[in-house]
């Protein structure tokens, strides 16, 4: 690692990184560097982890990715496969550690939170109030609802990608997103003044 030049990662496709990593472990760093920021953000969004915990989860997830590198199915996007492993590791970590606390607040600073506003079932709301609602409501959602909303609206994943990440049929993804949006709206509507919705 000491002599590894990050520049060597430039221009490499995911498949090339995998191929080169299997021949030379140092190239595995390219994979970590390419995805770590998004994955850390994702871990925090679905699990209420603090930064240190998220880094621990990420490290364990990348170890698993390394162990299973030969098992990657090229029919699905590498990114989806990586998200799947990170997702499973996150859920597993939090199940071991604790049941999800409803008092915790997820810190969301992603600009893509705005995409939630564009969701057809969630009407426009005043900016600051909206973020407050997102922060307080998201942790109240059932895990299966929270993860689809995060993947769809905060990670901009397609139904196919969500299906590959969560290992559920696309039809189930669609159903779950609809239910999640309803649940989100109900929770937000109950918790806050209803005038916040148009």
């Amino acid at each position: 690692m000491v002599n590894f030049k990050i520049e060597r990662c430039v221009g490499l496709s995911d498949r090339e990184i995998i191929r080169l990593s299997l021949a030379d472990l140092e190239y595995f760093a390219c994979l970590v560097l390419k995805y770590e920021v998004r994955l850390l953000s994702y871990i925090k969004k679905i699990s209420q982890s603090n930064h240190d915990e998220a880094e621990d989860i990420l490290q364990e997830a990348f170890i698993k990715i390394w162990k299973n590198l030969n098992g990657y199915d090229p029919r699905l996007k590498l990114e989806s496969w990586i998200f799947r492993i990170v997702h499973n590791e996150t859920i597993s970590y939090w199940r071991k550690k604790t049941s999800y606390s409803k008092d915790n607040i997820v810190r969301l600073d992603d600009e893509r939170l705005h995409t939630l506003m564009a969701a057809e079932d969630v009407d426009e709301m005043a900016g600051e109030s909206f973020f407050r609602i997102i922060e307080e409501v998201l942790p109240l959602l059932k895990q299966e609802y929270r993860e689809v909303l995060v993947l769809k609206y905060l990670e901009d994943k397609s139904y196919i990608e969500i299906s590959d990440i969560l290992k559920i049929p696309e039809g189930t993804v669609a159903t779950r997103i609809n239910r999640a949006k309803k649940s989100f709206k109900e929770l937000a509507g109950g918790k806050f003044d209803n005038t916040i919705f148009k």
Binding site: L25, F28, A29, V32, L58, W66, K67, N68, N70
Partner: peptide, 19 residues
Amino acid sequence: NAQKIIDKIKGENIQPRPE
């Protein structure tokens, strides 16, 4: 993170499962 992960893999001699 990348360095930590590579070091751990090397330190524990973790090998990918064979294809």
